[in-house]
């Protein structure tokens, strides 16, 4: 569903974190938000999903409301945010239990989400028994089970090792080919942005402003092909050129927390 971010500003006390963010995201589009640490990208994601109240500005959806979606804005978290005392299936079911669906429908939806993420045989396992990659797959299944209109991914692969990250990128692309949500993907990993996003929004240092919006013209599904390798390297290089200096400055900053 088309998503509109209009004049969003956010202050933490006297510190301005976000300054006048204006961004329209088309239906079914994947937008990556990147920027140096402390640029407010996670803050922006929190505002989009209604977990944070912006100091000013607003976020809205347009188009006919989706009858199918139980939770229009749905997060996937960096630390997975699974309940350790619930099994995989029960963690996924948590998103449905309060929606007043019948037990058979709940079970059916959970089974479908687990199948889509390759977790069917892990349904009874507990999070502590799973690898980081499998835990994040549970997080993805829990998001899919409510059929979100907008999927908000907050550094979803940042807690994973490089190989698992590759595997999950492939999984995400396969899942996105089958379900039609709009996605906002926060990351500090340039490669994830170049591989997964239709557009990459580069934010500046605090206070975060939109510095550049880079459209990648090759469809995400085709980016794995060898002939596009050069393009991905070029995108990566351009993104790095945009944020290198600010990342270096941000790195040398003394934090007042």
């Amino acid at each position: 569903m088309p998503l509109h971010i209009e004049g969003v500003c956010h202050n933490y006390g006297p510190v301005a974190a976000l300054d006048t963010i204006d961004l329209d995201i088309a239906d079914g589009e994947t937008v990556a938000l990147i920027g140096p640490s402390g640029c407010g990208k996670s803050t922006l994601l929190g505002i989009i999903g209604g977990l944070l109240q912006p100091t000013s500005g607003r976020v809205s959806l347009s188009g006919p409301p989706s009858a199918d979606s139980l939770n229009p804005f749905t997060y996937i978290f960096q630390d997975f945010a699974l309940l350790p005392w619930r099994s995989v299936a029960a963690n996924v079911a948590l998103a449905l239990e309060h929606r007043g669906l019948g037990a058979p429908e709940c079970r059916e939806r959970v089974a479908a989400a687990l199948a889509l993420t390759g977790l069917t045989e892990f349904a009874a396992a507990y999070p502590k028994q799973l690898s980081g990659g499998m835990r994040q797959r549970v997080g993805i299944a829990r998001a899919l089970v409510v059929r979100p209109s907008v999927m908000l991914l907050d550094e979803p692969l940042s807690a994973l090792d490089a190989q698992t990250r590759e595997l999950l990128m492939e999984d995400l692309l396969a899942i996105w080919a089958r379900e039609k949500s709009t996605r906002v993907y926060v990351t500090h990993n340039l490669e994830e942005a170049a591989r997964l996003a239709d557009r990459v929004v580069v934010l500046s240092r605090r206070p975060g402003r939109i510095r550049e919006v880079l459209r990648i013209d090759v469809p995400v599904a085709e980016r794995g092909r060898p002939e596009h390798t050069a393009l991905l390297i070029d995108v990566h290089r351009r993104l790095w050129a945009l944020i290198r200096d600010e990342a270096a400055t941000a790195e040398r900053e003394i934090l007042n927390v």
Partner: peptide, 24 residues
């Protein structure tokens, strides 16, 4: 973050207490 997760899935406050806070 678990409580934020509960809020982000629209869990009512009562469910956040009984399903997340108390077991945690």
């Amino acid at each position: 973050n678990l409580i934020r997760m509960g809020q982000s899935f629209g869990l009512p406050a009562r469910d956040i207490v009984t399903k997340i806070l108390l077991p945690g």
